[in-house]
């Protein structure tokens, strides 16, 4: 049964998943082209100097791309469920409600994590021959909150879309905007080093907020 649910989810979001992958790769390639240009027009030393003295990582163009991917993925995964009343059907399947919703959410979060890990790997493989490990970790740690924001975006959009009432949806949107804002509060390099693991754990825990919306939906809250 779980397999069938996961297959259904994949059918629903496969094109969007590909689109998100293409967008992420396109932005990654753009940022890496910029790095390549700095090296060919000036020198690698110039690139190192900028990374050592400024808060610039050369990947700033990607700041909101993971968030955009997360939001879009959640919209494509859960809006059809609500519009076509399919969620009601889903909840009538002979499986516990939490298992059904948990596998849907888990599938979405896993796909996002796969996308982000692959992007991270591409960035690492590109930077590895160019930069010292200290600078690679600086770039990647600075980018990490943007990727966690992508998961937060997914979690709050799912939470909001699955919510049955507009009043509570508005509250969920405001809470989501405030929570996601946290990941963009500081523009300094490596500013989030001390708390990023905690932010990731909290964000993954908050992905379960959708259980609350589904429970309200099942209770017939109007």
């Amino acid at each position: 049964m779980i397999k069938a649910i996961l297959y259904k989810e994949w059918i629903k979001i496969r094109y969007l998943f590909l689109l998100a992958a293409v967008i992420l790769m396109a932005f990654t390639a753009y940022c890496q082209l910029r790095i390549g240009n700095v090296i060919s027009l000036r020198s690698a030393a110039h690139l190192w100097e900028i990374l050592l003295t400024r808060d610039n990582t050369f990947y700033e163009a990607m700041r909101y791309v993971p968030l955009f991917s997360g939001v879009l993925l959640a919209l494509f995964q859960f809006v059809p469920e609500m519009q076509q009343k399919r969620l009601k059907l889903c909840l009538h399947l002979p499986l516990p409600q939490n298992k059904i919703i948990g596998s849907m959410l888990g599938f979405g979060v896993s796909l996002l994590i796969i996308l982000f890990v692959v992007t991270y790997l591409i960035i690492f493989l590109y930077l590895n021959p160019i930069l010292a490990p200290e600078l690679i970790s600086r770039v990647m740690l600075t980018m990490l909150p943007w990727f966690v924001a992508g998961i937060a975006g997914y979690a709050f959009v799912a939470f909001t879309v699955l919510e049955p009432t507009w009043k509570r949806r508005l509250l969920n949107i405001l809470a989501g905007v405030a929570f996601i804002r946290i990941f963009y509060l500081s523009g300094y390099a490596e500013a989030y080093n001390q708390v990023i693991v905690w932010l990731l754990i909290i964000t993954l825990a908050l992905a379960g907020l959708s259980f609350l919306s589904v429970s309200r939906f099942k209770d017939g809250v109007q």
Partner: peptide
């Protein structure tokens, strides 16, 4: 589960 998340959401707000 939803009771736990009610409290989590309340703490978050």
């Amino acid at each position: 589960m939803s009771k736990t998340y009610k409290i989590i959401y309340y703490i978050l707000l």
